[in-house]
Design a protein around this nucleic acid. Structure first.
Length: 543
RNA sequence: GGGCCCGUAGCUCAGCGGCAGAGCAGGGGACUUUUAAUCCUCGUGUCCUGGGUUCGAAUCCCAGCGGGCCCUCCA
């Protein structure tokens, strides 16, 4: 956790931490890395005794450019209009498209324990006139802005270009307008049909005031203006913006030269890759934040983003791997270590801080949280697949005492996660499938004592099956004992006969969940199959 | 073309000047009732390559090679 604490130690005076986002649509899991980093920085600053304001902005005056998220009839009408002015497509009561999508990600933040002191909406600040001084300076210094774009980003705008976008008085679009003149109070603008490919302006042109919400600054200037307006001192950003000549460079130059203020401390961070590739909603399941939150609970998701240094890309490949179970295991290991319990292996420096920052509630008693009973995810994933198992009771037995309210919550949360993981991500090897169709091939490899055990067990229960897992388990031990079979071998034989694998969940409960007639039949089949295969290699080969 | 990040065990990664490490996976073993639990045990891998600095380099410097992402709203 050194990166956040080091940052906190390196600054002095009150701090304003800020980030903002355009609410254009779905949020990817990776998008949560920024907010989590921001939240951790804010927590670290406060822990270091720095007065800290945590701001999160919604750039809702940005133009609508995501055609795919509009209903077909709305595309021609809404593309290019400010997101705050586009009606909510979902029709679920939000005032606008922007409010709907911003609402979704704010909800996600809250679930992750990320609570900015204030959310601000740029449409409101423009409307209130807060941005007017910056618009005026930008227009007065238009030549300087053009020079900066040329010098820093190698972007050449025409000499008539002015750094402001008017919201067209006729069609309401902001993405299609260009300002070509400024007389000190009014700008001359054109709403061009062909300025951008994704939206078509209406052709209006004329003089108008750019103040009071009638116009917005382009992104790089708006960003720099936000720093001045809110007094931002620290603002992390993704690597995409940190590239040479990219957004950050432009905005920093504009902040210094146009608005004459030192830009905030930068803190660039890497992305989250899914399976070694950039994540994409279209290329695979689980890329959306909402989906991932279904499977990975908040504290484990925070850990995923916290644990690596921000300048390192995170490789996360949940599909068909044990990446998610391992995330739980790592969390539990940190918890155990924080609680002072012995753990296997080495611990990262500052492991207790990593654990503490992973908690949803910043005010939580980390020591008490660390000491709580947490069922191993992998074990739960197995148990939940066996019909008839009372998972809660099993867990109480494992803990050795009753679960408290919080521990029950954790258990329920993990049961839900395990179900979602098995349904969407788990490798085949994690899924338990009773082979109802046919005797698994692997049963042919069973040794003679094991086959004899299966036959004896079949005889033992043919007259009447035990009722319940406990009784089944007892019967297995009893028969194994009477045959002189090691329990290990007995259990392996059962797993091979029913699951086609050498191990499995507690056998008694597994068998109790099956039809007794099927169990007897399968036991005899497995015992006989072995007999036939004895001394006959061909059977194995053919299997 | 430019920027940033990463190349260490099968996988994920720590170590960042002083005898190559951990977790997971895998192998072996223990356990007559938490048998995918728990416990014990097993790691020589061109630390991407080639130079350089140094008594000493996985670690610092230079040059390559390979991979990833970005440079347009995006994290």
């Amino acid at each position: 956790m050194e990166w956040a604490d080091d940052l906190a130690a390196s600054v002095s005076g009150p701090q304003v931490v800020n980030d903002s986002k355009t609410p254009s649509g779905t949020v990817h899991v990776g998008s949560l890395r920024g907010p989590v980093i921001l939240d951790v920085i804010a927590r670290a600053l406060r822990a270091a005794g720095r007065e800290t304001m945590f701001l999160y902005g919604v750039d809702d005056l940005d133009p609508m450019d995501a055609q795919a998220l509009l209903t077909p009839d709305a595309v021609e009408r809404e593309m290019g209009r400010p997101l705050a002015h586009v009606p909510d497509q979902a029709g679920d009561g939000h005032a606008s498209y922007a409010r709907h999508h911003a609402g979704l990600f704010i909800e996600t933040f809250a679930r992750l324990g990320i609570h900015p002191d204030r959310y601000y909406w740029m449409s409101e600040h423009y409307a209130a006139g807060d941005m007017d001084p910056y618009i005026r300076v930008a227009l007065d210094r238009a030549a300087l802005v053009r020079e900066i774009y040329r010098r820093v980003a190698n972007v050449r705008h025409p000499d008539t270009w002015h750094p402001v976008s008017v919201i067209c008085e006729t069609c309401g679009r902001v993405g299609t307008t260009i300002v070509t003149n400024w007389d000190g109070e009014r700008v001359f603008y054109e709403c061009r049909p062909d300025l951008v490919e994704w939206a078509h302006g209406c052709g209006t042109s004329g003089w108008t005031s750019p103040f009071g919400g009638r116009a917005k600054l382009p992104w790089n200037l708006e960003w720099a203006a936000q720093w001045s307006l809110f007094g931002v001192t620290i603002e992390p950003n993704g690597k995409d913006l940190a590239t040479a000549g990219g957004s950050r460079d432009r905005s920093e130059a504009i902040a210094r030269e146009v608005f004459e203020r030192e830009p905030p401390l930068n803190f660039p961070y890497e992305f989250l890759n899914i399976g070694g590739r950039k994540m994409s909603t279209s290329k695979g399941r689980g890329a959306s934040a909402q989906q991932m939150v279904e499977v990975v609970p908040p504290e484990q998701l925070r850990l995923l983003f916290l644990r690596p240094k921000p300048n390192q890309a995170i490789e996360f490949d949940p599909d068909g791997t044990d990446a998610i179970p391992r995330l739980f295991d790592e969390f539990d290991r940190l918890a155990a270590a924080t609680a002072g319990k012995p753990v296997k292996g080495e611990l990262p420096p500052g492991f207790a801080a990593v654990f503490r920052y992973s908690l949803v509630d910043p005010a939580a008693d980390a020591a008490a949280e660390a000491a709580r009973f947490r069922p191993a995810f992998g074990h739960l994933a197995v148990l939940t697949q066996v019909p008839g198992v009372d998972v809660a009771a099993t867990m109480r037995a494992e803990k050795g005492s009753g679960l408290d309210t919080r521990e029950t919550e954790i258990l329920d949360e993990r049961i839900r996660s395990a179900g979602a993981w098995l349904a969407a991500y788990a490798p085949e090897s994690a899924r338990l499938v009773v082979r109802h169709d046919a005797l698994p091939d692997a049963a042919a490899d069973l040794g003679l004592p094991q086959r004899q055990f299966l036959a004896a067990l079949a005889d033992r229960i043919a007259g009447g099956a035990p009722s319940g897992g406990e009784a089944w388990q007892a019967a297995i031990f009893e028969v194994a004992g009477s045959m002189g079979t090691q329990p290990r071998g007995a259990f392996e034989a059962l797993y091979q006969a029913f699951l086609g694998r050498p191990n499995g969940p507690r056998a008694g409960w597994l068998l109790a969940s099956l039809e007794p007639a099927f169990v007897v039949g399968r036991l005899r089949e497995a015992a006989a199959s072995g007999t036939l295969a004895a001394g006959e290699d061909a059977t194995e080969e053919a299997g």
